[in-house]
Amino acid sequence: MFTIYIVEDDKAMRDELLLLLQRNGYLTKSSTNFANIVTDVLAATPDLLLLDLTLPTIDGQLVCEQIRKLSSMPIIVVTSRDDNMNELLALNHGADDFIAKPYDPQILLAHIAAALRRAYAERLEAPLVCNNVSLDLLRSEVSFNGKCAQLTKNELRILALLIKNNGRIVSRANLQNDLWQSDEFIDDNTLTVNVNRLRTTLASIGVSDDFLLTRRGLGYMVQGDDKQ
């Protein structure tokens, strides 16, 4: 579990961000007082910092610079000031990534995951497991009861997203969007083909048919582990 600290002064924005991140399996921390934000962040020892640049009483660029001096945690700057000057300043002050508001929440999540992957590669090597189906992201392999099969790039991404959302429906649009983020601009039909191929692969290693379910009009889901 990764902890993410959110520095954001807009209340609605902060609450929704907290909810979104918690939903996606992150621990979250935030603060409403920005006077000593640098010491607050460092005291909380998060794994990643989401930083807004326009804060009351203190400038976000300054916060970024000071935290970078004392810590090597990934910093993602999220701001509505998306001109070149601010982007350049933020990156020079030690930010790892710069995302302009308004962003697609899925894209934000993808950027967070990428920053965490870069910074804590060793913590992520464990395969994703769900109902004894285990997915090895590095080797692009799925295994079940000792049998294993290779997956294509698209199948891997689809299954990974479904398992991460263990027991929740993932809409077709979200699956498509996730694939688009890795520059696979597939259309609706191709997604169906990819999911069907994934089903065949899963069946070939003995995974039962009701592992990957279709929810008509909503999307796909995998059967969650009951033990959680």
């Binding site: 807009d10 609605a12 924005m13 929704e16 961000l17 909810l19 979104l20 939903r23 509505s80 000031r81 998306d82 302009a100 508001k101 308004p102 962003y103 697609d104 929440p105 899925q106």
Partner: peptide
């Protein structure tokens, strides 16, 4: 324009949740 982007981003997050 920069100000209006924050509520839009908040609304997008609301919808996502």
């Amino acid at each position: 324009v920069h100000e209006i982007k924050t509520p839009i981003a908040a609304a997008l997050l609301l919808l996502e949740n």
